[in-house]
Amino acid sequence: MNFIKKWINTDAGKIPVVNTSLDWTDNFGTIKARLTFGRMNYKVEPGIYAVGNPNSDSFVFVSANYKMSFDVLRSNLSGIDAWILVLDTDGINVWCAAGKGTFGTKEIVNRIKITGLEKIVNNRRLIVPQLGAPGVSFYDVKKFSSFSVTYGPVRASDIPEFIKSGMKATEDMRKVRFTLYDRVVLIPAEIVLGKTYLIYAAFVMFVLSGLNKNGYSVSLIFDKGVLSILNVLIAFFAGAAISPLLLPWLPGRSFSLKGFFTGIIGFIISYYCGLTGNNALKIFAWFLLFSSAVSFLTMNFTGASTYTSLSGVKKEMKYAVPMQIAGAISGLLIWAIK
């Protein structure tokens, strides 16, 4: 393991001391995970780790066993002597795992027992990332273990400041953001994970492009099919990349409406590249296809966002999905007939 500096002996056995700086293998791992390659198996062993030179009074930080979560934590602990208690979240990050409860009360209580944490530290405080709170009940942790939970800041980068101010988080440290940077790093995953839609759409358009009034023509596939696949690609990148980029500036609150507007952007690009043809009905068909497809793709970005609620997404889907289906089907019909 590249991140283990050395091993120390404690009353609970040998504990690895980890680096607080990330090297190229860590950074390469992050890039790979961002591209979703091996992301579901990007794990560290659950258990206790050390940073710096901790003793029995040092802080205990809790983390998930997703390697990226662990890396973000340790890289923000330089100059701090601390223990890290890594929970088994099946390689899922803190917030998502907390939502499912795998980063949760039960796992904390069990992990304390399994690792023998009580033998290593005299203090009885766990610093749990705030985004772990959906899975953790502080009063139950106290009831079922001898430890009490202190919620640290949302971002590990605020930990040094949090400690300096005597375990006080400012209002800003408690708030989740969804900045341009936060959204940009999600785009590769949107593209890779959305590829199934891309393949289906390209296939449907390719096959349908052979249809004409007189039946089916294979030669048409190459005329119409290639153009239509370029349009599918534009629509896909509009939904997977332009929508995340422009999210706060797109009109409306619901993601499907925001995506409708990105769809229009995609349509305009296609129109000016001469990919929509020059028949008015056909252009209209492309308008319908672009707006409904990109609306759908953008709606799927709700899951990656940091502020959408289940009730809200259900509500928007109730009216958006029927409209997307109607738009796509009528667009396809007009396009196939013309």
Partner: peptide, 27 residues
């Protein structure tokens, strides 16, 4: 965003929220 953190950490049981994933693909 109905994450449920408040309900989970309200010892007085004063908060209720139907929590879940705000994710269209998940729905």
């Amino acid at each position: 965003m109905e994450c449920g953190a408040c309900e989970k950490n309200c010892a007085a049981k004063a908060i209720t929220v139907r929590s879940g994933v705000g994710c269209a693909a998940g729905i």
